[in-house]
Computed example of a mutant assay.
Amino acid sequence: MASTRPVDQAKLESFMGKMVGDMGAAMSGALVIVGAKLGLYKALAESGPIASEALAAKTRLAERYVREWLAAQAASGFIEYDKATGRFEMTPEQAMALADEDSPVYVASAFELIASGYIDEPKITAAFQSGGGVGWHEHHECLFRGTERFFRPGYRANLVQTWLPALDGVVDRLKGHAKVADIGCGAGASTVIMAQAFPDSEFVGFDYHGASIDRAREAAKEAGSPANLTFEVASAKEAPGGDYDLVACFDCLHDMGDPVGAARHIREMLKPDGTFMLVEPFAGDSVDANMNPVGRMYYSASTMICTPGSLAQEVGLALGAQAGEARLTDVLRDAGFSKVRRAAETPFNLVLEARP
């Protein structure tokens, strides 16, 4: 039924302005994927001010497509355009975000992750109607590629430098001969980073998704095949072995159907004085605390990926990507952890330390 309240014309125009902006953002995301795949951003960052003809020649691409892509990027504010010269260029800040895959703020890969939401929309729409789930393995492969590439820069910037040192005594152990499990490791970005940083410790990554483990093994080869690193197919509640000094979960516990059961199994995997490091999306403890750009992104991803993934599994607790510290602490305490504290945070992640 339509609202009987009168329409405020100024508010309507403001809202429509927002919608047009969001429509442009949604459409331009596909062009970010194109630019990253074809090396257009990298070429722009390297060349300085350049015309479409020269950029097309540099990248060996069709000029008419390059010209239109450049105009779209400039209209989006992703690159700069000089009307006087007709040339385009990238600022250092734009290049960090879109051209440099080693930058801690590289985000171009996020748009490949986002693309999976559009591709898989029919499955999620059907799940809204049935109440069923959509497993991680049921998504388009661009989700797996995008997730690996999107999360890797943040892990590379924070994991060894900040997060592990924030845990009580863990780095000293890792410098020795510690045993570490990375549960729900996906394509192995976090596991590879840790194994390279601490060559005297032993690391094993577990994930139920066979294709992700295949990719993780490829990533290990790309990293020089560290002798202290292995990957195995296993779910969180079935990961074998014990006596681990450290078990970690990176941005995945909320995706699990039974996070309490998974955390309980992790506690059993640990030595009596071992540590569980839980890295989760940053969130406040209430909906209103997450009414911000990060919360918008995470709630949307949670609707399309995380919540359906959990509902596809046993228990189906469906924590969602914005569970927040209080809810996550409840999960860990229900699993038998007696000590839980926030060890670190970034604008995108919470890092909790839990001990038996």
Rank of each mutant, 00 (worst) to 15 (best):
Y208A: 09
E218F: 12
E280R: 12
A223W: 12
H254D: 01
V204F: 09
E314T: 04
A211I: 04
S190A: 15
V247T: 12
P226Q: 13
S201W: 08
T275A: 01
I266T: 04
E268G: 02
G284R: 04
P240F: 10
D273W: 08
A187F: 05
Q196N: 08
A219G: 05
M277V: 00
L246Q: 09
H209V: 03
G242L: 15
I183R: 03
C249L: 13
V279N: 02
F198N: 02
R215Q: 07
M269G: 01
S235E: 08
G261V: 03
A195F: 07
S225Q: 15
G257N: 08
G309K: 12
P259K: 04
F276E: 00
I193R: 00
N292G: 03
N290I: 02
A219L: 15
S286Y: 05
G242N: 12
T191F: 14
S310N: 11
A189G: 07
L278P: 01
M256P: 05
Q313L: 15
K221Y: 03
C306I: 09
V260S: 06
F276P: 00
R264H: 08
G224S: 11
Q196K: 11
E218N: 07
C185W: 10
H265Y: 07
A195I: 00
G224W: 15
S190C: 06
E222D: 09
G188M: 13
A236S: 15
F282Q: 11
Y208R: 06
S225L: 14
P226S: 10
P226M: 11
K221V: 05
A211V: 05
A220C: 08
R264F: 06
G241T: 04
G188C: 11
G205M: 06
D285H: 03
D245H: 14
A219I: 06
C252G: 11
K237C: 10
D243L: 08
E218I: 08
C252H: 11
F203W: 11
P259N: 06
